[in-house]
Structures are given as structure tokens and as C-alpha cells.
Amino acid sequence: MARAQDELLSTEIVNRGMENSGPYAGSLSFSVRVRRGLPDFLNSVNLKYVKLGYSYLLSPVFYFLTAPVFIVIFSAQIGNLFIWQDFCPRCDPIGALFMVGLLGLIIYIYLDLSSRSTYLVDFACYRPPNELKISKDEFIELAKKSGKFNGAAIEFQRRALKNSGIGDETYMPRVVFQPGHKITLKDGREEAAMVMFGAVDDLLAATKIRPRDIRILIVNCGILNTTPSLSSMVINHYKLRHDIHSFNLGGMGCAAGIIAIDLAKDLLKAYPGCYALIVSTEVVSYTWYSGK
């Protein structure tokens, strides 16, 4: 059946049973005649060379190889009009139009083949309120008061704080130490909204860019992957355009930030002259270790 579809076959079905006079008069019998419709262009040898020539035509190497030829012709036309005729006012207008068109073609090819640059307009980092700032000593005290950790776990966390480089100016959600509180997905989404919206608000205020002007949105978070996604939270909160190119990267760890930047660079090449918003975050409350 796949072969028949590829060859674009046409069929004729003829009812011959109604004219029979035998014991099975009135029964239906069918005769199928198969005729070839169109040639199989997909497997044609000529089409293969057409594809090959088309790929060569679109290759930048083709333009670099043919550019010297056009330059020679252009120089010859310049010589004919302005050197040999000594700036004669009766110059050939067809030759002049040819040179102008050729020069425009060369400029167009050069601009089309030149790689477009990607610029960082601005960036912003969210800074939580001071009530969420927790020192290392306060961290240990809150962990003890939560009643969720035994002595061995407290000692392990003390060593982890010392060796991880976390200082006394660290912010974290205090809900993880709240006694009797069970962390839910709502806590994680609230933390994500606080961090993402806080950073994007500062960024939009500094750049004066309207949310409707953003055509590409990339959000990455290594731990929290919700449905609806974090990118949909940003789209709904800022009322971004309905045809925005949205991407939500999750489960990639710390490499997701670099991957998001590389993805934005590739997308800006496909959609030049627009803005791409990258939101990189991490949510710790939903996956926080709550002891035994």
C-alpha cells in the first residue's frame, strides 16, 4: 500500500454483477484497473541532481567562488564607461544599470551571508527581602527547632554548610523549617513565582521593553518541573503575545543555563530583530530534605 501511495496510482471500480443472469444474478463483482498517474519524482534520477544543484546554489561557497567573476565584470564595465570613454556623457545607460544592479546584488549577498550578532540588552538578579536571610548559625537552630532531624543529621548539615561555601548572607524560604508543615507543590510554585517575577519585573523596568515585544521565552529550572510549566506562568502573568516561542528546560542541572543561552542565540538567528527573554531559576523548597 505504501508503494501504491508513493507512485500516485489511480483506480477504476466497475460494477459488473447487475448484468449477470446466472444463479448469482444481482450479486456484486468488481474489476479493478490500475493506471499509473504521475511519474515517481521522488525516486527520479533527475530530481536527485536537482536537489544537489539546489544545495550548491544555497551554499556560501558558491557565492565566494563566483564573486570574483562578478567583480571582474564590474571592473570592466567601470573601465568602459569612465576610463576608456573619459567620462563621456553619452555613456551606455544599459551598462550603467547593469553595474548598479550587480553592485546591489553583491551587497545583498554579502549582508545575507554575514553572521548576525546577538546582544545582551540587560540582565537582572532577584534579591529576596531581608526576612528571608538566614545565617549558618540560624540555619542550624531552625533545623533543631523543626524537630525533623536527629543529632547525626544536624552534624552532617553543619559540615555541609562549612564546606559548601555558603555564607551568612544567604536567602532561603523559611517554610522548610516550619514545625508540622508538610511541603507541597503550592510552596514550590510560590517560591518560583516570587523569584521569577521579581527578576523579570526589575528587568522590564530597567530596559523599558514592553512584554508584547518579547517573541522568545526560555525558562529553565533543574528541580521543579510542573504542569502547567513555569514558562506558562510567565506568559500568563505578563500577558505575553499568543504566538510567542516558548521553551521550558528542566532536569538538566546547572548546564541548563548555558543551554538556554545557546538556544536563544540560535532562535534569534531564525527570528532576527526581536527580543528573547531567558529566565534561569532554582526552587529549593519543594524538594527540601525534611529528615526521617
Rank of each mutant, 00 (worst) to 15 (best):
G104S: 13
I94K: 13
G101N: 09
A2K: 07
L268M: 06
H242E: 14
L230F: 10
M18G: 04
P39I: 06
R116K: 15
S114P: 00
S231V: 05
A124P: 02
F123Q: 11
N236K: 15
I83P: 01
M252W: 02
I13G: 01
K239L: 10
G95W: 01
K144L: 11
L230Q: 10
C221F: 03
G251F: 04
S164N: 10
I94L: 12
S21I: 15
F70D: 01
I223N: 07
Q77A: 10
R116E: 12
V234R: 06
F123M: 13
L142N: 05
I223G: 00
Y110M: 13
A2M: 08
A270P: 00
G165W: 06
I278H: 09
S10K: 12
L161I: 05
Q5R: 08
L249P: 03
R35Q: 15
S232E: 14
D40M: 05
D137Q: 12
M196L: 05
Y171H: 13
P93A: 00
S246L: 03
A199H: 01
A192S: 08
Q178H: 11
F177L: 00
G79W: 09
Y24F: 11
P173T: 03
I73W: 04
L97G: 05
W84V: 11
I140A: 07
P173D: 09
A192T: 02
N15Y: 07
P89F: 05
L111Q: 15
L38W: 08
P93H: 02
T227P: 00
V32K: 08
L105S: 13
G37D: 12
P60W: 06
S21R: 12
